[in-house]
Structure formats: structure tokens, C-alpha cells
């Protein structure tokens, strides 16, 4: 089959560009851990409120003893629970999502936090947010008539502000405990 020499050059340039893009993405995926979220973990969506992890008292932002931050949220028609959360910037955050009813999607505009929330599964996404600010958290998978009103708010604050507020809340907690002990 005869291929015109000029056409061959164009094809080689195009294929070379594709090879460059794919190799950059693969290098980042393999060596820097940049890859699409992939988590297979099941849960009974009908009994989320009875589960230990996604019970109402356990939702929201939690800081483990080693400093790891996990955000647990439930998506249901037509809101995300809890409605507002505050997280620090430039910190790895693990989001764990479940749906209580139908298929939802969640996306924070101007960030890379985006995933589907499939009933029966726990969606887990790890991301960090370099820029402080107020971000909406929107549902991006049609879930019913109220889909366009399904959103919540995420406040990303400076890491210093976060550390200061955590230190202040620990001081208040220890003062409260001391006061209770003195009263006893």
C-alpha cells in the first residue's frame, strides 16, 4: 500500500504526540501515584444509618491520632450530609462517600475531587487542596427532580489556621475536663 511521504510524516508526528502524552501520564501514575480513584468496598446502602462508620454521629471531618484527615459523607436525594465541612489546605484528605439511595456523583469545581457514588459501594478519593477558599460540592449525576439543588459547602482554610483552631479546641476541651474534675 502506497502511503504518500508527507502523509507518513504527519501520521508519525501525530503518533509521536500521543506516545508522549501517554508516557507522561503513565510515569505520573506509576512513580507519583497520580491515578484515577479505584476502590472496591461494599456497604448496605439501606442500613447506612445503622453502620458504625457512617452513622450520623461519625459523619464529617475526623482527624486520626497520626494526623490523617478523613471526611465521611453521605449522599442522598437531595443533599450531602453534613452540609458544610471545613478542611485544611495543602493536606492529604481522604474522602469516603456512600449513597443512601440512588446513583450520585460529587464534584468540587476548581479542584480535582470528583467521583461517582454508587449505591452499595464506598467511594474513596484522596486529594489535597492547594488553595484556600470556599468551594461548592455539587452532585454531577442526575438523581431526580431536585438534582440541581443538591450541593454542600466546603471551606478550605490555611493550614496554620487549621492547626491553631485544633490547638484552641484541645485547650478548651482540657480546660473543661479540668473544671469538671475540680467540681467533683
Amino acid at each position: 500500500m502506497h502511503i504518500d511521504p508527507l502523509e507518513r510524516k504527519w501520521v508519525l508526528v501525530s503518533l509521536g504526540m500521543c506516545a508522549l502524552f501517554v508516557s507522561i501520564i503513565m510515569i505520573d501514575a506509576l512513580f507519583h501515584g497520580v491515578n484515577a480513584p479505584s476502590n472496591v468496598e461494599t456497604i448496605d446502602s439501606r442500613k447506612i444509618h445503622l453502620s458504625e462508620e457512617f452513622g450520623e454521629d461519625n459523619l464529617g471531618v475526623q482527624v486520626a491520632e497520626n494526623g490523617e484527615i478523613t471526611v465521611r459523607m453521605v449522599a442522598g436525594r437531595y443533599a450531602f450530609f453534613p452540609k458544610e465541612i471545613t478542611i485544611p489546605a495543602e493536606t492529604k484528605i481522604t474522602f469516603r462517600w456512600v449513597s443512601m439511595d440512588v446513583l450520585h456523583g460529587v464534584h468540587m469545581p476548581m479542584t480535582n475531587m470528583s467521583t461517582m457514588i454508587v449505591p452499595g459501594y464506598v467511594s474513596q478519593v484522596e486529594s489535597s487542596f492547594p488553595r484556600p477558599g470556599e468551594y461548592p460540592m455539587l452532585c454531577n449525576e442526575y438523581c431526580g427532580l431536585g438534582h440541581d439543588h443538591m450541593w454542600s459547602k466546603v471551606s478550605v482554610i490555611d493550614k496554620e489556621e487549621w492547626d491553631a483552631s485544633r490547638a484552641a479546641s484541645k485547650t478548651v476541651t482540657s480546660d473543661t475536663i479540668d473544671e469538671e474534675q475540680n467540681n467533683e
Binding site: 501515584g33 484515577a36 476548581m110
Partner: peptide, 8 residues
């Protein structure tokens, strides 16, 4: 993309 935070 990457400036908005690495995701995995």
C-alpha cells in the same frame, strides 16, 4: 490539572 492537587 496537577496544580489543583494530586488525586488517587
Amino acid at each position: 490539572f496537577l496544580s489543583r492537587g494530586i488525586i488517587n
